[in-house]
Computed example of a mutant assay.
Amino acid sequence: MYKRILVPTDGSDITQRAVATAVSLAKLTGAEIFTISVKDPYPYSAISEMQPTLPQEFLDAQERMASKNVAQVREACAAAGVTCTGHTVESVSVWEAVIDYAKQNNCDLIVMASHGRRGVQALLLGSETNRVLTHSSIPVLVVR
Rank of each mutant, 00 (worst) to 15 (best):
L28E: 14
C77Q: 02
L123N: 10
N106Q: 15
E75A: 15
H115R: 11
T29C: 12
T35W: 04
E128R: 05
F34K: 11
D10C: 05
Y44C: 08
V82N: 05
Q56Y: 12
A76Y: 06
N69K: 12
L109Y: 04
S24H: 01
F34W: 07
H87I: 08
V98P: 10
L125N: 08
R118M: 07
A102V: 00
Y101Q: 10
R131P: 06
S24A: 13
V82S: 04
S45L: 07
S127Y: 03
H115A: 00
N130D: 13
L28R: 13
R118W: 00
D13F: 13
S45R: 05
L133G: 00
V82C: 08
Q104A: 14
A46L: 12
N69H: 15
V94C: 02
A102C: 04
V92C: 10
V120E: 10
T35D: 01
V19H: 01
A18E: 03
G119H: 03
N105L: 12
E57L: 01
D60G: 09
E32Q: 14
L25P: 12
G119F: 02
V94K: 02
P43T: 00
T83Q: 06
V94N: 00
T29F: 12
A31C: 02
G30E: 13
T15V: 11
A76Q: 09
V82Q: 04
W95T: 03
E63F: 10
Y44D: 12
S48D: 14
S48Q: 13
A66I: 11
G116Q: 07
A22T: 10
A97C: 05
C77H: 03
V73N: 04
E128D: 14
T29M: 13
S24G: 15
T129S: 10
